[in-house]
Measured scan of single mutants.
Amino acid sequence: LTVEVTLDGRRIELHGLSEEAHEILRHALERNADDKEIKKILEELRK
């Protein structure tokens, strides 16, 4: 799955996400998580 997010003013596409990762990010974006929170989530998903 692919998600497009804006971090530090740049639009980035995240490819190859699992369903779980996609859901976690989608929920964070829906509640307008800040860049710091999104980065933390991405860091966790990379593990």
Rank of each mutant, 00 (worst) to 15 (best):
K40R: 12
A21P: 00
H22I: 15
L25H: 00
E43C: 15
K47C: 14
I38A: 00
N32M: 11
R11W: 06
K40G: 09
I12A: 02
E43R: 14
A28G: 01
R46F: 15
E37K: 04
A28H: 03
T2L: 05
A33P: 06
D35N: 08
T2N: 06
E4K: 07
E44C: 10
L25I: 12
L25S: 00
H27V: 10
K39T: 09
R11P: 05
I24F: 08
R31H: 08
I24T: 09
E43D: 11
R10E: 12
G16Y: 07
T2M: 10
E43V: 10
R46E: 11
R46W: 15
E20Q: 11
D34G: 11
A33C: 07
L14E: 01
R26N: 07
L45F: 12
N32D: 08
E43F: 10
L45I: 14
K40Y: 12
E19T: 11
E19F: 14
G9F: 01
N32K: 12
A28N: 01
V5Y: 02
H27F: 08
H22C: 11
L14W: 04
L1D: 04
T6Q: 07
L1K: 09
H15L: 08
V3F: 15
N32P: 03
I41R: 00
R31M: 08
A21M: 12
E30N: 12
D35L: 07
K39C: 07
A33R: 05
L17D: 00
V5P: 01
H15P: 04
E19W: 14
G9I: 02
K39E: 08
S18V: 02
G9Y: 02
I12P: 01
E23L: 14
D35S: 12
L17Y: 04
I24C: 06
R10P: 02
R31N: 09
I41Q: 00
E13H: 12
E43A: 13
G9Q: 03
G16I: 05
K39M: 14
E37P: 00
A21R: 02
R31D: 04
N32L: 10
R46Y: 15
E30I: 10
E19V: 14
R11A: 05
L29I: 11
K40D: 10
L14I: 15
G9K: 03
R31L: 07
R26L: 11
A33F: 07
A33V: 06
I41M: 06
I41D: 00
I41K: 01
L1Q: 07
A21G: 07
E44I: 14
L42K: 00
S18Y: 02
R46M: 15
E19Q: 13
L1S: 06
R31V: 05
D34V: 06
D35F: 08
R11M: 06
R46V: 13
G9C: 05
V3N: 03
V5D: 02
T2K: 10
K36V: 13
A33H: 04
D8F: 04
E37G: 03
E4V: 15
L29D: 01
L14M: 05
I38E: 00
R10T: 10
R11F: 06
I12T: 04
L25A: 00
R31K: 07
L29M: 10
K36H: 13
E20F: 11
R26M: 12
G9V: 02
D34P: 13
G9H: 03
D8P: 02
L7E: 02
A33S: 05
E13A: 08
D34T: 13
I38S: 00
A28Q: 01
G16P: 02
L45H: 04
A33I: 05
L25W: 02
L42C: 03
S18M: 03
D35C: 05
L17V: 05
E30L: 15
K47H: 13
A28L: 09
E43T: 09
V3I: 15
E4Q: 07
V5K: 01
H22V: 15
K47E: 09
H22W: 15
L17T: 01
S18H: 03
I41E: 00
K47T: 12
L7W: 03
S18N: 06
S18T: 10
